[in-house]
Design a protein around this nucleic acid. Structure first.
Length: 154
DNA sequence: GCCAACGTTGGC
DNA sequence: GCCAACGTTGGC
């Protein structure tokens, strides 16, 4: 089983939105970056776990744990003219933007602030902490996973 | 609000 | 194929 980190701007979709979603599940739509897409399409499996991270908050926080509940989903927003993620070049026969469905596993008892991650030994190479890192879907090593969960009170 | 870093677009 | 211009992300 692999571990991941999913970044989201809470103004767009927050942890509480996941808590309120039917079945506490959601399609992870709107990702428009090829590297992120490739990770979701090629490397994620049902049952993998991911950290749910709020960017653009003060401070940015790791909020909780989600699981990958479905893979190989064509992001419906690419075909939706009314969506801000609409892609005029997307072809329904060969969808460009593939995504996943996630389900809530559990909230971290203590959400972990980004500044704490930055000063924690063992996380020096975490993708999230790399300079200029903007990737919204990232791999997390087993070691990093264990450290972050412990910081979060698990 | 600022701005560095990054990804994409498009002219050549 | 190069690279300048542009738009976006996201920490601060």
């Amino acid at each position: 089983m692999k571990h991941w980190l999913l970044k989201t701007d809470p103004d767009t979709f927050a942890w509480k939105d996941l808590e309120n979603a039917p079945g506490k599940k959601t399609i992870w739509d709107g990702v428009r970056n090829y590297q992120a897409r490739n990770l979701m399409r090629d490397d994620m499996s049902v049952g993998d776990l991911a950290l749910f991270y709020h960017s653009q908050s003060d401070p940015p926080l790791v909020m909780g744990i989600v699981s990958i509940t479905k893979t190989g989903i064509a992001d419906p927003t690419q075909f939706d003219r009314k969506s801000k993620y609409y892609d005029a070049d997307a072809n329904p026969a060969e969808p460009r933007w593939m995504t996943i469905e996630i389900g809530l596993e559990r909230a971290l008892p203590k959400p972990v602030p980004l500044p704490d991650l930055r000063v924690t030994r063992g996380l020096e190479n975490m993708v999230l902490l790399r300079r200029g890192s903007r990737l919204s879907v990232q791999p997390v090593t087993d070691k990093e996973w264990t450290i972050v969960l412990r910081m979060g009170g698990l």
